[in-house]
Design a protein around this nucleic acid. Structure first.
Lengths: 255, 255
DNA sequence: AGATGGATCTTGACATCATCTAGATAATCT
DNA sequence: AGATTATCTAGATGATGTCAAGATCCATCT
Protein backbone atom coordinates (compact mmCIF):
# COMPACT_ATOMS: atom_id res chain seq x y z
CA UNK A 1 0.00 0.00 0.00
CA UNK A 2 1.37 3.36 -0.97
CA UNK A 3 2.06 6.12 1.52
CA UNK A 4 0.67 9.59 1.36
CA UNK A 5 2.41 12.85 2.03
CA UNK A 6 0.40 15.24 4.11
CA UNK A 7 0.57 18.95 3.48
CA UNK A 8 -1.17 21.91 4.92
CA UNK A 9 -2.69 24.58 2.76
CA UNK A 10 0.21 26.74 3.71
CA UNK A 11 2.77 24.33 2.38
CA UNK A 12 3.95 22.86 5.64
CA UNK A 13 4.73 19.20 5.40
CA UNK A 14 3.16 17.39 8.29
CA UNK A 15 4.46 13.92 7.55
CA UNK A 16 3.55 10.77 5.70
CA UNK A 17 1.07 8.11 6.54
CA UNK A 18 0.73 4.57 5.34
CA UNK A 19 -2.46 2.64 5.25
CA UNK A 20 -3.53 1.58 8.71
CA UNK A 21 -1.40 4.27 10.24
CA UNK A 22 -3.28 5.49 13.22
CA UNK A 23 -1.78 8.95 13.27
CA UNK A 24 -3.10 11.70 15.42
CA UNK A 25 -4.15 13.90 12.55
CA UNK A 26 -6.19 11.24 10.89
CA UNK A 27 -9.28 13.18 11.89
CA UNK A 28 -9.29 15.74 9.10
CA UNK A 29 -8.50 13.92 5.87
CA UNK A 30 -10.71 16.18 3.81
CA UNK A 31 -9.20 19.50 4.56
CA UNK A 32 -5.65 18.47 4.98
CA UNK A 33 -4.27 18.03 1.51
CA UNK A 34 -6.94 19.63 -0.53
CA UNK A 35 -4.59 22.24 -1.94
CA UNK A 36 -0.99 21.18 -1.78
CA UNK A 37 -0.46 17.55 -2.55
CA UNK A 38 2.24 16.19 -4.80
CA UNK A 39 1.22 12.64 -4.18
CA UNK A 40 -1.19 9.96 -5.22
CA UNK A 41 -4.90 10.39 -4.89
CA UNK A 42 -6.70 13.42 -3.65
CA UNK A 43 -9.65 13.17 -1.38
CA UNK A 44 -12.40 13.97 -3.78
CA UNK A 45 -16.06 13.80 -3.07
CA UNK A 46 -17.36 10.85 -5.07
CA UNK A 47 -20.79 12.04 -6.06
CA UNK A 48 -20.86 14.97 -8.46
CA UNK A 49 -24.43 14.78 -9.62
CA UNK A 50 -26.18 15.31 -6.32
CA UNK A 51 -24.34 18.44 -5.33
CA UNK A 52 -26.18 20.29 -2.65
CA UNK A 53 -28.18 17.20 -1.93
CA UNK A 54 -28.81 17.03 1.74
CA UNK A 55 -31.86 15.11 0.64
CA UNK A 56 -29.68 12.26 -0.47
CA UNK A 57 -31.44 9.02 -1.02
CA UNK A 58 -28.44 6.77 -0.58
CA UNK A 59 -27.42 5.41 2.76
CA UNK A 60 -23.99 6.93 2.51
CA UNK A 61 -23.74 10.66 2.33
CA UNK A 62 -20.67 10.99 0.18
CA UNK A 63 -18.90 13.78 1.98
CA UNK A 64 -20.60 13.99 5.30
CA UNK A 65 -17.56 15.26 7.11
CA UNK A 66 -17.45 18.32 4.92
CA UNK A 67 -21.18 18.86 5.18
CA UNK A 68 -21.02 18.60 8.95
CA UNK A 69 -18.23 21.16 9.23
CA UNK A 70 -20.13 23.57 7.04
CA UNK A 71 -23.34 23.04 8.94
CA UNK A 72 -21.48 23.53 12.21
CA UNK A 73 -19.89 26.76 11.04
CA UNK A 74 -23.25 28.00 9.87
CA UNK A 75 -24.93 27.12 13.11
CA UNK A 76 -22.25 28.84 15.18
CA UNK A 77 -22.54 31.89 12.99
CA UNK A 78 -26.26 32.04 13.63
CA UNK A 79 -26.53 31.07 17.26
CA UNK A 80 -23.05 31.52 18.67
CA UNK A 81 -20.98 28.77 20.24
CA UNK A 82 -23.41 28.63 23.13
CA UNK A 83 -26.32 27.80 20.88
CA UNK A 84 -24.39 25.06 19.19
CA UNK A 85 -25.63 21.49 19.31
CA UNK A 86 -24.51 18.32 17.62
CA UNK A 87 -28.04 17.24 17.05
CA UNK A 88 -28.96 20.45 15.27
CA UNK A 89 -25.92 20.03 13.06
CA UNK A 90 -27.05 16.53 12.24
CA UNK A 91 -30.50 17.83 11.49
CA UNK A 92 -29.14 20.42 9.08
CA UNK A 93 -27.04 17.84 7.32
CA UNK A 94 -30.02 15.54 7.12
CA UNK A 95 -28.47 12.66 8.98
CA UNK A 96 -29.15 10.84 12.20
CA UNK A 97 -28.43 12.50 15.50
CA UNK A 98 -25.37 10.37 16.26
CA UNK A 99 -23.67 10.72 12.90
CA UNK A 100 -21.55 13.77 13.85
CA UNK A 101 -20.14 12.01 16.88
CA UNK A 102 -19.01 9.14 14.70
CA UNK A 103 -16.91 11.47 12.57
CA UNK A 104 -15.64 13.86 15.21
CA UNK A 105 -15.93 11.96 18.43
CA UNK A 106 -17.59 14.73 20.36
CA UNK A 107 -18.76 18.30 20.28
CA UNK A 108 -15.24 19.42 20.96
CA UNK A 109 -13.98 17.36 18.05
CA UNK A 110 -16.29 18.99 15.57
CA UNK A 111 -15.62 22.49 16.80
CA UNK A 112 -11.90 21.78 16.71
CA UNK A 113 -12.27 20.84 13.06
CA UNK A 114 -14.11 24.09 12.39
CA UNK A 115 -11.44 26.07 14.19
CA UNK A 116 -8.67 24.31 12.27
CA UNK A 117 -10.34 25.14 9.00
CA UNK A 118 -10.61 28.72 10.16
CA UNK A 119 -6.86 28.88 10.61
CA UNK A 120 -6.36 27.33 7.21
CA UNK A 121 -8.52 30.00 5.64
CA UNK A 122 -6.67 32.64 7.60
CA UNK A 123 -3.25 31.38 6.58
CA UNK A 124 -4.21 31.26 2.94
CA UNK A 125 -5.66 34.76 3.03
CA UNK A 126 -2.65 36.18 4.82
CA UNK A 127 -0.23 34.61 2.39
CA UNK A 128 -2.14 35.91 -0.56
CA UNK A 129 -2.36 39.37 0.98
CA UNK A 130 1.39 39.59 1.54
CA UNK A 131 2.21 38.34 -1.91
CA UNK A 132 3.75 40.96 -4.15
CA UNK A 133 3.71 43.76 -1.59
CA UNK A 134 7.15 45.23 -1.10
CA UNK A 135 6.87 47.74 1.72
CA UNK A 136 6.66 45.76 4.97
CA UNK A 137 4.35 48.35 6.48
CA UNK A 138 1.95 47.87 3.60
CA UNK A 139 2.37 44.17 4.05
CA UNK A 140 1.27 44.43 7.65
CA UNK A 141 -1.68 46.54 6.64
CA UNK A 142 -2.63 43.98 4.02
CA UNK A 143 -2.28 41.12 6.47
CA UNK A 144 -4.46 42.96 8.94
CA UNK A 145 -7.14 43.52 6.36
CA UNK A 146 -6.98 39.89 5.37
CA UNK A 147 -7.41 38.93 9.00
CA UNK A 148 -10.47 41.10 9.35
CA UNK A 149 -11.87 39.98 6.05
CA UNK A 150 -11.57 36.30 6.92
CA UNK A 151 -13.02 36.87 10.37
CA UNK A 152 -16.03 38.74 9.09
CA UNK A 153 -16.57 36.50 6.09
CA UNK A 154 -16.39 33.36 8.21
CA UNK A 155 -17.95 34.44 11.45
CA UNK A 156 -18.69 30.87 12.46
CA UNK A 157 -15.08 29.84 12.22
CA UNK A 158 -13.85 33.02 13.85
CA UNK A 159 -16.16 32.65 16.81
CA UNK A 160 -14.57 29.34 17.69
CA UNK A 161 -10.91 29.69 16.85
CA UNK A 162 -9.75 31.22 20.11
CA UNK A 163 -12.09 29.62 22.59
CA UNK A 164 -9.81 27.30 24.42
CA UNK A 165 -12.58 25.75 26.47
CA UNK A 166 -14.49 24.63 23.42
CA UNK A 167 -11.61 23.49 21.26
CA UNK A 168 -9.14 20.68 21.83
CA UNK A 169 -5.77 22.35 22.07
CA UNK A 170 -3.93 19.05 22.12
CA UNK A 171 -5.15 18.23 18.66
CA UNK A 172 -2.05 18.11 16.47
CA UNK A 173 -3.73 19.30 13.32
CA UNK A 174 -5.28 22.26 15.07
CA UNK A 175 -1.98 23.26 16.60
CA UNK A 176 -0.23 22.98 13.24
CA UNK A 177 -2.85 25.19 11.60
CA UNK A 178 -2.48 27.77 14.34
CA UNK A 179 1.28 27.81 14.07
CA UNK A 180 0.95 28.22 10.34
CA UNK A 181 -1.11 31.36 10.69
CA UNK A 182 1.23 32.69 13.30
CA UNK A 183 4.13 32.09 10.92
CA UNK A 184 2.58 34.36 8.33
CA UNK A 185 2.39 37.20 10.81
CA UNK A 186 5.88 36.47 12.04
CA UNK A 187 7.36 36.74 8.56
CA UNK A 188 5.66 40.06 8.12
CA UNK A 189 7.01 41.44 11.37
CA UNK A 190 10.46 40.15 10.52
CA UNK A 191 10.32 42.10 7.29
CA UNK A 192 9.42 45.18 9.28
CA UNK A 193 12.34 44.58 11.58
CA UNK A 194 14.73 44.18 8.65
CA UNK A 195 13.52 47.36 7.05
CA UNK A 196 12.82 49.70 9.91
CA UNK A 197 14.47 48.64 13.10
CA UNK A 198 16.96 45.77 13.47
CA UNK A 199 16.54 45.86 17.24
CA UNK A 200 12.83 45.15 17.08
CA UNK A 201 11.56 42.42 19.35
CA UNK A 202 9.72 40.37 16.77
CA UNK A 203 8.28 37.95 19.27
CA UNK A 204 6.79 40.74 21.33
CA UNK A 205 5.33 42.62 18.40
CA UNK A 206 3.90 39.47 16.92
CA UNK A 207 2.04 38.66 20.06
CA UNK A 208 0.83 42.19 20.50
CA UNK A 209 -0.46 42.43 16.97
CA UNK A 210 -2.04 39.02 17.15
CA UNK A 211 -3.71 39.88 20.42
CA UNK A 212 -4.94 43.18 19.10
CA UNK A 213 -6.32 41.68 15.93
CA UNK A 214 -8.10 39.01 17.89
CA UNK A 215 -9.38 41.55 20.36
CA UNK A 216 -10.61 43.87 17.67
CA UNK A 217 -12.53 41.17 15.91
CA UNK A 218 -13.93 39.78 19.14
CA UNK A 219 -14.95 43.11 20.57
CA UNK A 220 -16.20 44.63 17.36
CA UNK A 221 -19.71 43.40 17.96
CA UNK A 222 -19.51 44.82 21.48
CA UNK A 223 -18.25 48.21 20.44
CA UNK A 224 -21.29 48.93 18.34
CA UNK A 225 -23.87 49.05 21.14
CA UNK A 226 -21.29 50.65 23.39
CA UNK A 227 -20.78 53.49 20.93
CA UNK A 228 -24.49 53.96 20.58
CA UNK A 229 -24.84 54.35 24.30
CA UNK A 230 -22.10 56.93 24.42
CA UNK A 231 -23.37 58.62 21.29
CA UNK A 232 -20.01 58.35 19.63
CA UNK A 233 -19.06 57.64 16.06
CA UNK A 234 -18.34 54.02 15.37
CA UNK A 235 -14.99 53.12 13.90
CA UNK A 236 -14.83 50.65 11.09
CA UNK A 237 -12.69 47.60 11.52
CA UNK A 238 -10.35 48.70 8.78
CA UNK A 239 -9.92 52.07 10.45
CA UNK A 240 -8.93 50.32 13.63
CA UNK A 241 -6.46 48.11 11.83
CA UNK A 242 -4.88 50.96 9.89
CA UNK A 243 -4.75 53.02 13.02
CA UNK A 244 -2.98 50.22 14.79
CA UNK A 245 -0.34 49.93 12.10
CA UNK A 246 0.27 53.66 12.03
CA UNK A 247 0.54 53.84 15.79
CA UNK A 248 2.87 50.88 15.95
CA UNK A 249 5.14 52.34 13.33
CA UNK A 250 5.32 55.92 14.52
CA UNK A 251 4.01 55.96 18.06
CA UNK A 252 1.95 58.49 19.90
CA UNK A 253 4.63 61.09 20.50
CA UNK A 254 5.05 63.35 17.49
CA UNK A 255 8.47 63.61 15.94
CA UNK B 1 -42.40 54.30 50.66
CA UNK B 2 -39.06 55.94 50.35
CA UNK B 3 -37.06 55.95 47.16
CA UNK B 4 -33.57 54.66 46.78
CA UNK B 5 -30.70 56.16 44.86
CA UNK B 6 -28.78 53.70 42.85
CA UNK B 7 -25.03 54.04 42.41
CA UNK B 8 -22.36 52.01 40.78
CA UNK B 9 -19.13 51.16 42.52
CA UNK B 10 -17.52 53.69 40.28
CA UNK B 11 -19.72 56.51 41.49
CA UNK B 12 -22.02 56.75 38.51
CA UNK B 13 -25.57 57.54 39.47
CA UNK B 14 -27.92 55.22 37.69
CA UNK B 15 -31.19 56.66 38.94
CA UNK B 16 -33.71 56.28 41.70
CA UNK B 17 -36.30 53.65 42.24
CA UNK B 18 -39.40 53.62 44.33
CA UNK B 19 -41.06 50.62 45.76
CA UNK B 20 -42.82 48.60 43.10
CA UNK B 21 -40.78 50.28 40.42
CA UNK B 22 -40.18 47.66 37.84
CA UNK B 23 -36.94 49.11 36.55
CA UNK B 24 -34.71 47.21 34.23
CA UNK B 25 -31.82 47.01 36.63
CA UNK B 26 -33.79 45.54 39.45
CA UNK B 27 -31.99 42.26 38.89
CA UNK B 28 -28.80 42.96 40.81
CA UNK B 29 -29.75 44.61 44.08
CA UNK B 30 -26.81 43.10 45.95
CA UNK B 31 -23.99 44.39 43.90
CA UNK B 32 -25.43 47.67 42.83
CA UNK B 33 -25.08 49.94 45.80
CA UNK B 34 -22.81 47.96 47.96
CA UNK B 35 -20.17 50.66 47.92
CA UNK B 36 -21.58 54.03 47.15
CA UNK B 37 -24.97 54.65 48.61
CA UNK B 38 -26.00 57.86 50.27
CA UNK B 39 -29.45 56.61 51.06
CA UNK B 40 -31.46 54.52 53.42
CA UNK B 41 -30.72 50.89 53.96
CA UNK B 42 -27.90 48.96 52.48
CA UNK B 43 -28.34 45.48 51.26
CA UNK B 44 -26.58 43.62 53.98
CA UNK B 45 -26.48 39.92 54.49
CA UNK B 46 -28.58 39.27 57.61
CA UNK B 47 -26.84 36.23 59.03
CA UNK B 48 -23.41 36.87 60.45
CA UNK B 49 -22.98 33.79 62.57
CA UNK B 50 -23.19 31.13 59.93
CA UNK B 51 -20.60 32.66 57.66
CA UNK B 52 -19.37 30.11 55.21
CA UNK B 53 -22.32 27.96 55.98
CA UNK B 54 -23.44 26.33 52.80
CA UNK B 55 -24.74 23.67 55.14
CA UNK B 56 -27.32 26.08 56.38
CA UNK B 57 -30.16 24.54 58.30
CA UNK B 58 -32.67 27.31 57.76
CA UNK B 59 -34.99 27.33 54.81
CA UNK B 60 -33.75 30.69 53.64
CA UNK B 61 -30.16 31.02 52.68
CA UNK B 62 -29.53 34.59 53.71
CA UNK B 63 -27.48 35.79 50.79
CA UNK B 64 -28.05 33.22 48.15
CA UNK B 65 -27.58 35.63 45.28
CA UNK B 66 -24.06 36.36 46.40
CA UNK B 67 -23.31 32.70 47.02
CA UNK B 68 -24.60 31.79 43.58
CA UNK B 69 -22.46 34.37 41.84
CA UNK B 70 -19.40 33.17 43.68
CA UNK B 71 -20.17 29.55 42.96
CA UNK B 72 -20.74 30.42 39.31
CA UNK B 73 -17.45 32.27 39.03
CA UNK B 74 -15.66 29.38 40.65
CA UNK B 75 -17.27 26.86 38.38
CA UNK B 76 -16.41 28.83 35.27
CA UNK B 77 -12.86 29.19 36.48
CA UNK B 78 -12.60 25.43 36.85
CA UNK B 79 -14.50 24.16 33.86
CA UNK B 80 -14.73 27.11 31.52
CA UNK B 81 -17.97 28.63 30.30
CA UNK B 82 -18.67 25.49 28.33
CA UNK B 83 -18.64 23.34 31.43
CA UNK B 84 -20.98 25.64 33.24
CA UNK B 85 -24.34 24.45 34.47
CA UNK B 86 -26.99 26.02 36.64
CA UNK B 87 -27.56 22.78 38.45
CA UNK B 88 -23.92 22.40 39.40
CA UNK B 89 -23.96 25.95 40.76
CA UNK B 90 -27.01 25.07 42.80
CA UNK B 91 -25.26 21.96 44.05
CA UNK B 92 -22.25 23.97 45.17
CA UNK B 93 -24.39 26.46 46.95
CA UNK B 94 -26.29 23.64 48.59
CA UNK B 95 -29.72 24.63 47.30
CA UNK B 96 -32.26 23.08 45.04
CA UNK B 97 -31.65 22.82 41.34
CA UNK B 98 -34.14 25.52 40.44
CA UNK B 99 -33.03 28.11 42.95
CA UNK B 100 -30.55 29.89 40.64
CA UNK B 101 -33.17 30.37 37.98
CA UNK B 102 -35.40 32.08 40.50
CA UNK B 103 -32.76 34.71 41.20
CA UNK B 104 -31.31 35.19 37.76
CA UNK B 105 -33.99 33.98 35.41
CA UNK B 106 -31.73 31.86 33.31
CA UNK B 107 -28.19 30.75 32.68
CA UNK B 108 -27.60 33.94 30.76
CA UNK B 109 -28.87 35.97 33.67
CA UNK B 110 -26.43 34.45 36.14
CA UNK B 111 -23.48 34.74 33.81
CA UNK B 112 -24.44 38.33 33.09
CA UNK B 113 -24.31 39.01 36.81
CA UNK B 114 -20.86 37.44 36.99
CA UNK B 115 -19.68 39.49 34.05
CA UNK B 116 -21.06 42.67 35.56
CA UNK B 117 -19.24 42.01 38.79
CA UNK B 118 -16.11 41.42 36.76
CA UNK B 119 -16.39 44.89 35.28
CA UNK B 120 -17.00 46.33 38.72
CA UNK B 121 -13.82 44.71 39.99
CA UNK B 122 -11.99 45.94 36.92
CA UNK B 123 -13.21 49.49 37.31
CA UNK B 124 -12.25 49.61 40.95
CA UNK B 125 -8.80 48.19 40.24
CA UNK B 126 -8.17 50.59 37.37
CA UNK B 127 -9.22 53.58 39.41
CA UNK B 128 -7.00 52.59 42.26
CA UNK B 129 -4.11 51.97 39.91
CA UNK B 130 -4.37 55.41 38.35
CA UNK B 131 -4.69 57.16 41.64
CA UNK B 132 -1.71 59.27 42.53
CA UNK B 133 0.28 58.54 39.38
CA UNK B 134 1.27 61.71 37.57
CA UNK B 135 2.93 60.66 34.34
CA UNK B 136 0.16 59.53 31.98
CA UNK B 137 2.44 56.89 30.48
CA UNK B 138 2.96 55.41 33.91
CA UNK B 139 -0.74 55.68 34.45
CA UNK B 140 -1.38 53.61 31.36
CA UNK B 141 1.15 51.07 32.49
CA UNK B 142 -0.49 50.87 35.89
CA UNK B 143 -3.93 50.51 34.36
CA UNK B 144 -2.66 47.73 32.14
CA UNK B 145 -1.19 45.87 35.07
CA UNK B 146 -4.41 46.28 36.97
CA UNK B 147 -6.29 44.86 34.03
CA UNK B 148 -4.05 41.83 33.90
CA UNK B 149 -4.09 41.41 37.63
CA UNK B 150 -7.86 41.43 37.83
CA UNK B 151 -8.17 39.07 34.88
CA UNK B 152 -5.76 36.55 36.31
CA UNK B 153 -7.03 36.87 39.86
CA UNK B 154 -10.63 36.45 38.77
CA UNK B 155 -10.38 34.02 35.92
CA UNK B 156 -13.99 33.02 36.22
CA UNK B 157 -15.22 36.56 35.76
CA UNK B 158 -12.73 37.28 33.02
CA UNK B 159 -13.71 34.23 31.03
CA UNK B 160 -17.24 35.48 30.74
CA UNK B 161 -16.98 39.25 30.42
CA UNK B 162 -16.52 39.44 26.67
CA UNK B 163 -18.54 36.50 25.49
CA UNK B 164 -21.46 38.18 23.85
CA UNK B 165 -23.25 34.93 23.15
CA UNK B 166 -23.33 33.95 26.80
CA UNK B 167 -24.07 37.32 28.34
CA UNK B 168 -27.11 39.52 27.95
CA UNK B 169 -25.87 42.69 26.34
CA UNK B 170 -29.17 44.42 26.71
CA UNK B 171 -28.94 44.23 30.47
CA UNK B 172 -28.70 47.82 31.65
CA UNK B 173 -26.57 47.10 34.66
CA UNK B 174 -24.08 45.11 32.65
CA UNK B 175 -23.81 47.85 30.05
CA UNK B 176 -23.31 50.47 32.73
CA UNK B 177 -20.53 48.45 34.34
CA UNK B 178 -18.82 48.02 30.98
CA UNK B 179 -19.04 51.71 30.20
CA UNK B 180 -17.61 52.45 33.59
CA UNK B 181 -14.52 50.39 32.95
CA UNK B 182 -14.15 51.89 29.54
CA UNK B 183 -14.33 55.32 31.09
CA UNK B 184 -11.32 54.59 33.25
CA UNK B 185 -9.26 53.74 30.22
CA UNK B 186 -10.60 56.72 28.35
CA UNK B 187 -9.52 59.13 31.06
CA UNK B 188 -6.06 57.66 30.98
CA UNK B 189 -5.75 58.03 27.23
CA UNK B 190 -7.06 61.58 27.45
CA UNK B 191 -4.30 62.36 29.89
CA UNK B 192 -1.81 60.95 27.42
CA UNK B 193 -3.28 63.09 24.70
CA UNK B 194 -3.06 66.21 26.83
CA UNK B 195 0.54 65.53 27.73
CA UNK B 196 2.05 64.06 24.61
CA UNK B 197 -0.01 64.77 21.53
CA UNK B 198 -3.08 67.01 21.36
CA UNK B 199 -4.02 65.54 17.98
CA UNK B 200 -4.29 62.03 19.34
CA UNK B 201 -7.42 60.13 18.38
CA UNK B 202 -8.50 59.10 21.85
CA UNK B 203 -11.36 56.98 20.65
CA UNK B 204 -9.12 54.99 18.36
CA UNK B 205 -6.38 54.43 20.89
CA UNK B 206 -8.87 53.44 23.56
CA UNK B 207 -10.35 50.76 21.41
CA UNK B 208 -6.97 49.52 20.33
CA UNK B 209 -5.65 49.30 23.86
CA UNK B 210 -8.82 47.70 25.10
CA UNK B 211 -8.74 45.17 22.30
CA UNK B 212 -5.11 44.41 22.90
CA UNK B 213 -5.55 43.97 26.62
CA UNK B 214 -8.47 41.69 26.09
CA UNK B 215 -6.60 39.77 23.42
CA UNK B 216 -3.53 39.39 25.57
CA UNK B 217 -5.47 38.01 28.47
CA UNK B 218 -7.54 35.74 26.26
CA UNK B 219 -4.64 34.39 24.27
CA UNK B 220 -2.24 34.12 27.16
CA UNK B 221 -3.25 30.56 27.87
CA UNK B 222 -2.84 29.78 24.18
CA UNK B 223 0.58 31.33 23.84
CA UNK B 224 2.13 29.01 26.38
CA UNK B 225 1.70 25.75 24.49
CA UNK B 226 2.38 27.60 21.24
CA UNK B 227 5.73 28.81 22.55
CA UNK B 228 6.60 25.35 23.73
CA UNK B 229 5.97 23.96 20.31
CA UNK B 230 8.16 26.58 18.71
CA UNK B 231 10.75 26.27 21.43
CA UNK B 232 10.64 29.97 22.13
CA UNK B 233 10.87 31.89 25.34
CA UNK B 234 7.53 32.75 26.85
CA UNK B 235 6.77 36.38 27.54
CA UNK B 236 5.19 37.32 30.79
CA UNK B 237 1.95 39.21 30.69
CA UNK B 238 3.52 42.24 32.24
CA UNK B 239 6.26 42.22 29.62
CA UNK B 240 3.61 42.23 26.95
CA UNK B 241 1.78 45.09 28.59
CA UNK B 242 4.86 47.19 29.10
CA UNK B 243 5.99 46.45 25.58
CA UNK B 244 2.65 47.61 24.30
CA UNK B 245 2.86 50.91 26.12
CA UNK B 246 6.40 51.54 24.93
CA UNK B 247 5.51 50.73 21.36
CA UNK B 248 2.42 52.88 21.44
CA UNK B 249 4.35 55.83 22.79
CA UNK B 250 7.42 55.69 20.59
CA UNK B 251 6.62 53.39 17.72
CA UNK B 252 8.71 50.91 15.85
CA UNK B 253 10.76 53.32 13.81
CA UNK B 254 13.70 54.64 15.78
CA UNK B 255 14.06 58.36 16.13
C1' DA C 1 -18.86 -13.55 -9.05
C1' DG C 2 -19.05 -14.17 -4.18
C1' DA C 3 -17.41 -13.59 0.38
C1' DT C 4 -15.23 -10.87 3.86
C1' DG C 5 -13.83 -6.92 6.51
C1' DG C 6 -14.11 -2.23 7.41
C1' DA C 7 -16.14 2.19 7.11
C1' DT C 8 -20.37 4.68 7.37
C1' DC C 9 -24.58 5.70 9.30
C1' DT C 10 -28.89 4.52 12.24
C1' DT C 11 -31.45 3.24 16.30
C1' DG C 12 -32.28 3.09 21.00
C1' DA C 13 -31.11 4.05 25.61
C1' DC C 14 -29.41 6.74 29.56
C1' DA C 15 -27.95 10.45 32.40
C1' DT C 16 -27.86 15.38 32.53
C1' DC C 17 -29.46 19.83 31.61
C1' DA C 18 -32.59 24.34 31.31
C1' DT C 19 -36.87 25.80 32.06
C1' DC C 20 -41.65 25.89 33.62
C1' DT C 21 -45.42 25.34 37.05
C1' DA C 22 -47.14 24.59 41.43
C1' DG C 23 -46.43 24.37 46.12
C1' DA C 24 -44.02 24.94 50.69
C1' DT C 25 -41.74 28.01 53.93
C1' DA C 26 -39.97 32.19 55.91
C1' DA C 27 -39.86 37.27 56.27
C1' DT C 28 -42.15 41.60 56.10
C1' DC C 29 -45.69 44.83 56.20
C1' DT C 30 -49.99 46.74 58.12
C1' DA D 1 -52.11 38.72 64.49
C1' DG D 2 -53.25 38.33 59.66
C1' DA D 3 -52.10 39.06 55.00
C1' DT D 4 -48.86 39.68 51.53
C1' DT D 5 -44.59 39.10 49.44
C1' DA D 6 -40.11 37.02 48.71
C1' DT D 7 -37.53 32.92 48.86
C1' DC D 8 -36.77 28.33 47.95
C1' DT D 9 -38.30 23.33 46.82
C1' DA D 10 -40.35 19.51 44.09
C1' DG D 11 -41.81 17.50 39.99
C1' DA D 12 -42.40 17.35 35.06
C1' DT D 13 -41.07 18.11 30.24
C1' DG D 14 -38.40 18.39 26.19
C1' DA D 15 -33.70 18.75 24.45
C1' DT D 16 -28.94 17.39 24.57
C1' DG D 17 -24.21 14.53 24.53
C1' DT D 18 -22.54 10.17 24.63
C1' DC D 19 -22.47 5.26 24.46
C1' DA D 20 -23.50 0.53 22.62
C1' DA D 21 -25.45 -2.32 19.23
C1' DG D 22 -27.11 -2.99 14.85
C1' DA D 23 -27.90 -2.02 9.81
C1' DT D 24 -26.11 -0.76 5.30
C1' DC D 25 -22.84 0.08 1.89
C1' DC D 26 -18.13 -0.16 -0.22
C1' DA D 27 -13.51 -1.97 -1.28
C1' DT D 28 -10.75 -5.62 -1.58
C1' DC D 29 -9.30 -10.26 -2.17
C1' DT D 30 -9.84 -14.85 -3.97
Amino acid sequence: MMSRSIWLVSGVHLGTVKKDDNVCFSLQPMTRWYIASNQTTKNTAPAEGDENATDRSSYHHGDLRRALIEAAAGLVEESGPAGFSLREVARRAGVSHAAPAHHFGSTKGLLTAVASEGFELLTAAMRQARHGVEDPADQLRAVGRAYVSVSLGNAGHAAVMFRSDIVDHDDEFFAACGLDSYGQLQQTIEAIRDTYNPDLDVELVCKLVWSTAQGIVTLHSDFGPLDERRDVRTLELTQLLDGLVDLLLDGIRPR
